[in-house]
Design a protein around this nucleic acid. Structure first.
Lengths: 341, 341
DNA sequence: CTGAAAGCGCTAACAT
DNA sequence: ATGTTAGCGCTTTCAG
C-alpha cells in the first residue's frame, strides 16, 4: 500500500493559529452547536487556520473519545428487491441532514446475515440503527439494546418498549388488495404467499383470508400456495401450479410485487392474458410494477415515508431531541390501479 | 438516549484471564494472522475469557491506533437504477470475505454528491474505495490519493498510475448493440444518448456512430437525441420525439436500460408495436429488461464481475497482497437477445 | 476566555 | 513467553 501522508491534526491547527488544542476543538464544535467559549478574534484566527490547512477531524478519534461514530446502520433484507433502494435512499438522505452517514447492510434474504448485521454494526459503534428484517426477534437485538443504541424497526415482532416502530399496516394492505379483486367481480381467489416464517408473509395471508370471509367467500386451501420465499421464481412456479388446477382461480393476490412479476412472467410464457383470463394484484408498488406488462395493480407501501420517519426518530433519539417512550406508528398502504385487474 | 452499558474491554479480559492486555491483544490477532507469541495453554485460557465475557474489540480504538477502519467505501451513481444493487451486493460480499465492511454511498445522480462522497469516506477513514462515478475527474480524488487510500474505479477518465481500473468496454458494447440492429436489417437508426457529460454517455454515442460508419450508413444527426440524463423520463420523451419525425427511425439504441424502459413505455402508450414498428435495444441488462414487455434486448455489462474484481483488487492492495502497478482491465459486454429487436 | 492534562481502548515497540 | 508502556487524535474537566 502507498505511504499515507500524515494528515492535519488538531495539534497542527493549534500550532498554526498559536492557540491550544482545546480552543481549536471548541471552535470546531462551535460551528455545530452555538456555544461561545472562544473570543471572536481568536475564533476568527482559528477558523482561518482550519481552512488554510484543510483540517478535517479524525472520526475514529472522535468516536473513541465521545462514543459516537456519526454512523447509523440501515439494514434491508434484500437490496435487489427494488422496494429497498428507495427505502435506503430516503433513510440516507434523512440521516445526512444531521451530518450522519449510513452504513447500509444487505441481508441477502438470509437470517444469518440479519444476525450478523447486529454484530457488525455494533462493532463499528453505530449510533443508531434502522432495521428492516424478516427473521429477527427482539432477543436478537439484545447486544444493541444493552449498548443503548436506539433502534427503529418496521417489524411488529420487534415490538418492545425500547424500540420505535413505524410499520406498514400489513393486514390492511392485503385486505384492501383482496377487496379490490372482489369488487372487480372475482369470487374464486388465490393467494401466492411469501415466506410464512416472516411477519409480512403471515399477516398478508391473514389479510387475504379475512377479506374473503368478510365477503362471505369460502377459502379454498388449494388456492393458497407458495409461502417459502418472496422471490420471483417462486411466483412463477406458484402461478403455473394454480392455472393447472382443475378449477383455477380467476384472480390472485401475491404477497409482494416481486412474486407478482414472476407470476406475470408465467402468464406471458403460457399465453394467458392478464387481466382477461386471470387478474393479478401485488403489494409494494415497486418501480417494476409500472414497467411490467400489463402494468401491475398493487398497493403502495410508502417506503420513502417509512424510511424517513424511522431514520428521523432514530436520529432524534441519539441526539437527545426525542426522549418520549417508544412509539408505534402505522402507515396505511394505498391502492395503485394499473391494468392487471 | 438510554444509558450505554459499558462494554467489555481488553483490560477486562486480561484481568479475567490473569494475563496482560498485550497477551490478549496478541491472541485476538493471532486468530487472523498465524503469529504465535502466546503459549498454547495461555492462549486457551485467554480464548475462554474472550468467549465468556463476549469480548468484541472496539473498532474506533483499533482504527485510531492502526489507521485502519476495516471499512471500504462503495460509491454508486444511483442506487435506484437496478444495475447498481447488483453491483453493491457483489462488492459487499467480496469485502466481507476479508472481514471488511462496506459503506455504501448513493450519489443520487448528482455531481456534488459524488464529490461529497470523497470527503465523507475519508472522514470515516475508509481503508479503500470502489468508485463508480459519472462526474469525477482524477483531481477530485486528490484527498484520497494523498492519504494513500487504494482506489478502484470503473471510469476511464480516472486513469492514473495510482488507481486500478476495471471498466466495461463502453465502445464495444454500443458498437455491438448497434451492429445487432443493423444485422436485423435496420438502416435508419436512432440513438437516445445518456448524459453526454459522462464517459458512458460520450463513448456509447461514439460506438453507435462508429458502428453506422463501419456499415456505411450515414449518421442523421436528427436521430441522435437526449443526452442530458440517464433517467427513464428522458427515454420516454426522446422516443416520443423520434417517432414524431417526418422520417422516423426503424430502430433505436438507448444509452442504457433505464432509458430503454422509458422508451418502451412511450411505445406502449402510443400503441407502437415493438419490435414490429420499431426495434429497441438497451445496454446494462438490468432485471427490468427481463420484466419489460416485450423483453428488452440489451447488453449484459457484468456488474457482478466488475464489482467483485474491483473490490478484490482494492482489498488486496490495502492488505499488501497486491503491490503491482495499477492495472487496467476491460470487460466486454455480451448480447442478451430478447424480443425487442 | 484560554490552556494543561487526563484519558477513550487499543497496538506495538521494548523490556524482562 | 509475557508484561509495561507510550502513544493514535480527540474531547473535556479543571485551573488559571
Amino acid at each position: 500500500m502507498a505511504e499515507r501522508k500524515r494528515s492535519v491534526r488538531l495539534k497542527d491547527v493549534a500550532a498554526h493559529a498559536g492557540v491550544s488544542v482545546a480552543t481549536v476543538s471548541a471552535v470546531m464544535r462551535g460551528l455545530h452547536d452555538g456555544s461561545v467559549r472562544v473570543g471572536p478574534e481568536t475564533r476568527e484566527r482559528v477558523q482561518n487556520s482550519i481552512r488554510e490547512l484543510g483540517y478535517r477531524p479524525n472520526r475514529a478519534a472522535q468516536a473513541l473519545r465521545t462514543r459516537r461514530s456519526g454512523l447509523v446502520g440501515i439494514v434491508v433484507p434484500d437490496i435487489t428487491n427494488p422496494l429497498f433502494p428507495q427505502f435506503v435512499r430516503a433513510g440516507q438522505q434523512r440521516a445526512e441532514v444531521d451530518g450522519v452517514h449510513a452504513m447500509v447492510w444487505d441481508s441477502c434474504g438470509e437470517a444469518s446475515r440479519e444476525r450478523a448485521a447486529i454484530a457488525a454494526l455494533l462493532d463499528h459503534q453505530v449510533d443508531g440503527v434502522v432495521l428492516v428484517t424478516e427473521h429477527l426477534g427482539i432477543e436478537d437485538l439484545a447486544p444493541l439494546l444493552d449498548a443503548g443504541v436506539p433502534i427503529g424497526a418496521t417489524d411488529a415482532r420487534l415490538a418492545d418498549p425500547r424500540v420505535d416502530l413505524v410499520s406498514e399496516d400489513l393486514h390492511a394492505g392485503a385486505f384492501a388488495a383482496t377487496s379490490h379483486l372482489i369488487e372487480a367481480g372475482h369470487r374464486r381467489l388465490a393467494h401466492i404467499a411469501g415466506d410464512r416464517t416472516t411477519t409480512a408473509g403471515t399477516i398478508r395471508e391473514q389479510g387475504f383470508r379475512d377479506a374473503l370471509e368478510a365477503n362471505e367467500i369460502g377459502v379454498d386451501e388449494q388456492l393458497i400456495v407458495g409461502g417459502d420465499t418472496f422471490e420471483r421464481d417462486a411466483g412463477y412456479t406458484a402461478l403455473t401450479h394454480l392455472v393447472e388446477l382443475d378449477d383455477p382461480p380467476t384472480a390472485v393476490l401475491t404477497s409482494n410485487d416481486v412474486l407478482a412479476i414472476g407470476a406475470l412472467k408465467a402468464c406471458a410464457d403460457r399465453g394467458i392474458v392478464v387481466p382477461d383470463e386471470i387478474a393479478l394484484i401485488g403489494i409494494d408498488n415497486t418501480p417494476e410494477a409500472d414497467v411490467a406488462h400489463p402494468g401491475l395493480t398493487t398497493m403502495d407501501v410508502h417506503p420513502h415515508e417509512v424510511a424517513s420517519k424511522l431514520t428521523d426518530i432514530v436520529i432524534r433519539r441519539l441526539n437527545g431531541t426525542l426522549t418520549a417512550p417508544a412509539r408505534r406508528e402505522i402507515v396505511t398502504p394505498t391502492l395503485v390501479a394499473r391494468q392487471s385487474v
